[in-house]
Design a protein around this nucleic acid. Structure first.
Length: 637
RNA sequence: GCCCUUGUAGCUCAGCUGGUAGAGCAAUUGAUUUGUAAUCAAUAGGUCCGCGGUUCGAAUCCGUGCGGGGGCACCA
């Protein structure tokens, strides 16, 4: 006679064992209709799971994340069922729920086409219409393995073999013809999935995520509680596509890529102007924060990389070059060794610490061809890199300084939403535990003092020290990992860095690796997408276009252009033989923040009429005041 | 690197089952002189990604190489 306690504390008494279906019926008619899944003492179960004892129960509908997850999970199963009906001989493997949807990996010789996706979708729809029932069974391990082997599902058999022996093996039957090994839980019948789903793409995926294994075919789908949710998801995707930095980069004439150098950027004037502005801005910030900017060679002898450990650990990703005298050099993939050598020049005292060495260093890394992605993943990029040489007791304060600098800079560029990822000691590491204790404590303290949201990634630190990664959230809610701060007890010693401490003893400094944006190239890609190409005035590559209303006012427009330009505001005067409307449209599409319109009125009053991007309000201002106001925006604070 | 997919004018894209290319925008020229998101007309523009093959004939079919895209793996 179970007593069922609901989330609001209400208790329901039943005379005999019950299921979630009966409980929801007892609560309300609408819940009986909407119920998808139940949790019993915190564990998710099928609605038809039989409850014999007193327990806490919560019933979930499609409005709950748990409900949505089951919808997606069932959609994955029904997709697999549809695929096996349509394409006999296809083997199933795994099919989990992911963000916004689900996928299922199949083993089949012939590739699935986009037409196949439509067919599969249609078949899923039919299965959902039939509202076939779900049934759970628990099988013996041997029985399950033999069964799946017998029906030719070698992947499933392999999965079962890898499941710990003490775990229960559940088989879910969907109707009478199809079943799958699955932990569950699942919906009571296929009709509950609804129709707010769509198969989105096919791709390759390695069996068990290992590139040594064979490649399977993965079909992705997105699934939602309502059609409205599906529509708004698809809209979001469309929105993101419009912001794609590769598209905007071309449209706005910022940069291009070409075959002759895959993964390397050809910066055009406008894109490079953005680049220079960012660097100048950071220079000012770093100067103020006590950094010393240096520049180190791009090509360095192989022997150096062997000594630093890069040759062995990172060699596969390094570009090498051979000179006519047959010496082997590597193009730097990182700046750290160079900076240590700068540090090593001249004897250092504890009074020189912390010594903050920074460089806008261009590094080259041979990334796998398949990983290249516009500006976001390139083979040649500029790091806003720095290495801070300090003593152990300076770690906390230096980490805090770095963190504050990073947050300050992100804020100025329009990213207020930042989270941190803190990673501590990995199993394989160098240095003794005392030092690690100290390093982790110092770094974590800095993390806590930021008062920002943070996650702890256990054991994910670098082998030479713990690290923080700075993740920013863009205008449409996507997360990007940019800045990084790592504590290093290893490399300075390897490359013989030392300083003389207070007592006159020679010591090895701790080195903090730190990057603000990480890669300038990548960061500009993120910026483009964050602002959808509509940059704030101060970083905008072309800030103003002067437009005369007719030929009669060209002379005045030229004067305005000269004066504006002289005041440090980038400008262009459009003297083409097009009418005003045409030019406004053209330059608005080019995302120029300010258009300066010049006609009779402006000539008479020595003024300009300002048209801001995405606003059709007209704002007349004396030319002098315009220049004063807007050139002030260009000043780096 | 792996799987799928894709490469046509400066850009965006048509070109069905093989008969050596077309539109819109941009460009150029001319007319229009415009007060807040496309004035009209004419002209010019192409090694159909490279190489090889099948064929009387290839942008189209096949092979291969190189790029791009979507994923997977990778991102020290």
């Amino acid at each position: 006679m179970p007593i069922i306690t609901l989330p609001d504390g209400k208790e329901l008494n039943f005379l005999k064992e019950v299921t979630g279906i009966e409980i929801s019926k007892k609560i309300s008619k609408s819940l009986a209709k909407d119920a998808l899944i139940i949790s019993v003492n915190g564990e998710l179960r099928d609605l038809y799971h039989i409850i014999k004892n007193d327990c806490y129960v919560k019933i979930f509908t499609s409005k709950d994340p748990e409900g949505l997850e089951v919808i997606r999970h069932d959609a994955a199963h029904i997709m697999a069922m549809a695929v096996q009906e349509l394409f006999p001989g296809t083997q199933v493997t795994i099919g989990p729920v992911i963000e916004n949807g689900f996928y299922y990996d199949f083993a089949r010789k012939e590739p699935f086409t986009s037409d196949d996706l439509k067919k599969i979708e249609k078949r899923m729809s039919e299965i959902i219409d039939k509202d076939i029932k779900t049934r759970r069974e628990v099988w013996e391990r041997e029985k399950a393995i033999n069964h799946f082997k017998k029906i030719g599902e070698k992947y499933k058999a392999e999965i079962i073999e890898s499941i710990p022996k003490n775990e229960e093996l559940s088989i879910y039957h969907h109707g009478d013809t199809w079943h799958d090994l699955c932990r569950g839980p699942h919906l009571v019948s296929s009709g509950k999935i609804g129709k707010a789903f769509k198969l989105t793409k096919v791709s390759g995926a390695y069996w068990r995520g290992n590139s040594k294994n064979e490649m399977l075919q993965r079909i992705y789908g997105t699934g939602w509680a309502t059609h409205k949710d599906l529509e708004s998801y698809l809209k979001r995707i469309e929105e993101a596509e419009k912001r794609d930095h590769r598209k905007l980069g071309k449209e706005m004439d910022l940069f291009h890529f070409r075959e002759e150098s895959p993964g390397s950027v050809f910066w055009h004037e406008k894109g490079w102007s953005l680049f220079r502005k960012l660097i100048n801005y950071m220079r000012a910030k770093q100067d103020a924060a006590g950094y010393k900017e240096v520049n180190t060679p791009e090509v360095l002898d192989r022997l150096l990389w062997e000594k630093s450990g890069h040759w062995e650990k990172y060699g596969a990703n390094m570009y090498t070059t051979q000179t006519p005298d047959e010496k082997v050099f590597a193009i730097k993939p990182m700046n750290c060794p160079g900076h240590i050598h700068v540090f090593n020049q001249g004897l250092k005292s504890y009074r020189d610490l912390p010594l903050r060495i920074t460089e806008f260093g261009k590094v080259h890394r041979y990334e796998p061809s398949g990983s290249l992605h516009g500006l976001l993943r390139v083979r040649a990029f500029t790091q806003d890199d720095a290495h801070i040489f300090c003593s152990e007791d300076q770690i906390t304060s230096e980490c805090l300084n770095v963190t504050n600098l990073i947050l300050d800079i992100y804020k100025d560029l329009g990213f207020e939403n930042v989270i941190l990822k803190y990673a501590d000691r990995p199993e394989v590491r160098v240095g003794n535990d005392d030092v690690w204790d100290k390093a982790e404590e110092s770094l974590l303290k800095a993390v806590k003092e930021t008062k920002l949201e943070y996650t702890i990634n256990k054991g994910e630190g670098a082998f030479y020290g713990p690290k923080i990664e700075f993740v920013l959230r863009d205008a449409i809610g996507r997360d990007w990992q940019c800045g990084t701060l790592q504590v290093d007890f290893n490399l300075p010693g390897r490359l013989e860095a030392s300083y003389i401490d207070k007592s006159g003893a020679k010591k090895i400094p701790v080195m903090l690796h730190r990057a603000l944006f990480g890669s300038l190239e990548r960061f500009i890609g993120i910026l483009i997408e964050h602002y959808a190409g509509k940059f704030p005035f101060w970083i905008s590559p072309l800030q103003t276009v002067v437009i005369p209303i007719s030929e009669d006012f060209e002379d005045y427009a030229k004067i305005v252009y000269e004066k504006v330009k002289k005041a440090g505001i980038s400008s262009f005067v459009d003297l083409k033989k097009h009418n005003l409307n045409y030019k406004i449209r053209e330059h608005s599409l080019a995302k120029i923040p300010i258009l300066l319109i010049c006609g009779k009125k402006e000539v008479d009053t020595n003024s300009v009429t300002i048209r801001r991007l995405d606003s059709n309000k007209q704002e007349n201002m004396e030319l002098k005041s315009f220049i004063k106001k807007f050139s002030a925006l260009n000043k780096i604070s």
